[in-house]
């Protein structure tokens, strides 16, 4: 089967790329300014104790030995201990990852669906008032500066009007009181709406514009006239014949934009104090928490690689001309 071979090759490729990233990250962190020792070693300690700690951390070993220890540890699932938390990094990651996945996948999927739908309408009614409104709104969304927009939402809707909580993911009192699962879910959704809205609008603009232009070029294709000549209704022509073809580039874009959405996501998480990976990354980098930052970067790399694989497979599923 061609597809199985393709997936195997792709996985191999992903493994190799990941290994390269792993290596690059190792050296990158050793090149970065700032001294990890000063971060974790208490200046009050005696020089002997300091030396002892450095030995314990393996920081006195030559770089290549450090590298092999690093690789060995990684493949045995040991990502090191966070300097700041003093906990294994994998525990912290596992703790934060679900929050990020929840926020990112929900916002990306919603933005893609809405972008495809609105872009389709906009192209179909090209030149109308709806089209102008949607295109201009999309352009505004596309050019929004995330921190500004996020702060505006936070200030307006959470601080001034008070419809939404100021940050976090849960209201602690609700969880202490042992409320029902339904109430807890509602609470999380309530907390999620503002960061979700921020990411949704940021992505919506580009998806909408892409779908619109893609749809416009598809509508000029001959098979649209063929469909009309069969006597099909306009709705079937728009939703079936045109939209399926037009949505293909949007899917690619969704996969690729995942890589770039991480930084926007980190800012959003930071502003709404959403306990996710992005916020942890900002924290780790600004505090020289190397093991934690390293793990966050690796995770982002893994997400991008996997997203690309998923897009490739999805594309083959949707476009019959593509077979691996």
């Amino acid at each position: 089967m061609g597809n199985q071979k393709f997936i195997f090759n792709k996985l191999l490729e992903i493994f190799i790329i990941f290994f390269v990233i792993l290596t690059l990250l190792f050296f990158l962190f050793r090149l970065s300014p700032g001294d990890p020792i000063s971060k974790i070693v208490d200046p009050m300690l005696s020089p002997e104790d300091t030396l002892h700690m450095i030995e314990q951390l393996g920081l006195d070993e030559p770089v290549h030995t450090q590298y092999f220890i690093y690789i060995k540890n990684f493949f045995s699932g040991n990502l090191g201990h966070s300097f700041h938390y003093g906990e294994p990094v994998s525990n912290i990651i596992m703790d934060k990852l679900p929050c990020t996945i929840l926020l990112f996948t929900t916002s990306t999927i919603l933005a893609a669906l809405a972008g495809v739908f609105l872009g389709k309408i906009s192209a179909w009614k090209k030149g109308s008032g709806i089209d102008s409104f949607l295109s201009i709104s999309a352009l505004i969304c596309h050019t929004l500066f995330i921190p500004w927009f996020a702060l505006l939402l936070l200030w307006g809707l959470a601080y001034k009007v008070g419809w939404f909580p100021l940050g976090g993911i849960i209201s602690p009192e609700l969880w202490i009181e042992n409320s029902s699962a339904f109430m807890k879910t509602l609470d999380v959704i309530h907390h999620m709406l503002l960061p979700l809205g921020t990411l949704f609008f940021i992505h919506l603009g580009s998806y909408l514009l892409l779908m619109r232009s893609s749809m416009l070029s598809v509508l000029r294709e001959d098979y649209i006239i063929t469909a009309r000549a069969k006597g099909l209704s306009e709705r079937i022509i728009r939703d079936k014949h045109a939209a399926k073809n037009a949505a293909l580039p949007v899917i690619t874009s969704v996969g690729l934009s995942l890589a770039f959405s991480i930084n926007g996501g980190a800012l959003t998480e930071q502003i709404f104090t959403w306990p996710g990976i992005g916020r942890e990354l900002i924290f780790a980098v600004s505090n020289n928490d190397y093991p934690l930052a390293q793990a966050c970067f690796l995770l982002i790399a893994a997400v991008v690689l996997i997203a690309n694989l998923v897009v490739d497979l999805l594309y083959a599923y949707l476009d019959p001309r593509i077979r691996y």
Binding site: Y223, T226, A227, L232, N245
Partner: peptide
């Protein structure tokens, strides 16, 4: 398509590829 139908030039994209 029912009483009057058209035969298009197929070399172009007269058939929907998907």
């Amino acid at each position: 398509g029912k009483d009057v139908a058209m035969i298009f030039q197929a070399a172009m994209n007269a058939l929907n590829p998907v």
